[in-house]
Design a protein around this nucleic acid. Structure first.
Lengths: 233, 233
DNA sequence: TGACATATTATGTGCATACATTTTATTGTT
DNA sequence: AACAATAAAATGTATGCACATAATATGTCA
């Protein structure tokens, strides 16, 4: 004899997701209101709400007050990526991580940097270039500008030993982050640093971060041919 | 005189996030238990729970039963991307969308395709290549393999008029999706199709989808130089 | 000392209820 | 017929409570 177990929101989630996947609720159609589903499945409305919110977060359904719940016509294809913290990424592959400072100098923000950080006035910056290595081989080259006004302590950090990215992450949490992925041809310089050929296709990641309105840093990271960014959902 | 308004979970969220960002709760430290925060801020524990779950989902904190809540040392650097449905992406820029079938033929799955879809046995596939255009210019070139056994109806779809990607999304929802982003040099063929130069750096998106254990499709989409994938958080 | 059973604790979940919010539908007025 | 005021409907949220679950700390016994 089966015991009348309580449904968890996960059960409801699975049920509804199943009905969407097997087209019991086809794309574009309306899903019954929470209360009816609750009645149907035999649980509280709050439980259905919890499940529905999860489904909505994942982009399968759309909810509107009074409008009800609808299955999206084109399910939102979104992917969550873990942005590489180079050291962790390298270590995860079992390789030995290495770090090498290429250059470090104070300078005023050039046009492109000011634009990336949405600066309105000229700003003093620390310009750092560094290499991340996996088993002695170039893994990622980063070209970074750090806003000295926002992060004055950075001037006292020994960046020949410590990785600017991780120092910033641990000491300057950010509240906003802009990301861009792109492909570009390697210049002679970049090719040399990455031990690649000039003109090779590099994978680029550009990131800018702020805390509130204060600009923190903007980086462009380049990966040699063969690099891939993964995600599974 | 201010009315004693109730706190919403969003208020609690903002408060705690603020305390993390201004290092009231520094990285690695423990955050008070939900009940104490509730008592402190003057709301119900459930409200705190709601806020904490959101913060945990976003990768700022980590929660463990009995272990309590901790601020992560390296705040999860993750980003959510909306994978382009080419037509919508083009239309969003105000350009006119166009679609052009390049080739269509039935064939057995070659090695690479079988691997991408984790096929154990040889499988009959439909191989489709197509161009997405923005204002008549190449925007994205897709090379797609569709599993005929899982999606037999695809053989009856007029792919010279209808876009395989959207047809599949609307008719074959998937439960799993693998994604890869990469950069590669354009071959002569690809360059011609994308009106680029041979050897140009192309941005690549490879996607495979399944419904349950059934393989649906695997695509490689290539974008001409200048293409960027964005995300802001 | 070490291993295993047991208690404790913080988060996770389900439920019932009341009310808030938003958007649509209806009604009424000019 | 057009427009504004009003009602209605669905989801969203806050609360209190009881209990479930998982991880840690404690205690007992060999």
């Amino acid at each position: 004899m089966t015991i009348a177990e309580r449904l968890t929101w996960r059960d409801v989630y699975d049920t509804i997701q199943g009905r969407i996947l097997d087209a019991t609720y086809p794309p574009g159609t309306r899903v019954p209101r929470d209360e009816d589903i609750a009645l149907d499945l035999g649980c509280a409305r709050a439980t259905v709400q919890r499940a529905m919110r999860a489904l909505a977060d994942e982009g399968l359904i759309e909810r509107k007050r009074k409008g009800g719940t609808h299955v999206l016509r084109l399910p939102a294809t979104r992917a969550t990526f873990h942005i590489p913290v180079a050291r962790l990424e390298v270590e995860a592959t079992g390789a030995r991580y290495g770090y090498q400072l290429v250059s470090r100098e104070e300078a005023d923000a050039p046009r492109a940097v000011a634009a990336a950080l949405e600066l309105h006035a000229p700003a003093r910056m620390l310009h750092v270039r560094a290499l991340h290595l996996a088993n002695q081989r170039p893994y990622l080259f980063e070209d970074r500008w750090i806003c000295v006004e926002t992060v004055p302590e950075i001037l006292d950090v020994d960046l020949s030993r410590e990785n600017a990215n991780e120092w910033l992450l641990q000491n300057r949490p950010y509240s906003r982050c802009d990301l861009r992925f792109f492909a570009m041809k390697a210049s002679a310089d970049e090719a040399a640093l990455l031990q690649a050929e000039e003109g090779d296709a590099l994978f680029g990641i550009a990131r800018s971060t702020w805390n509130g309105a204060d600009p923190i840093t903007t980086v462009t990271a380049l990966a040699p041919p063969g690099y891939e960014l993964h995600s599974r959902a």
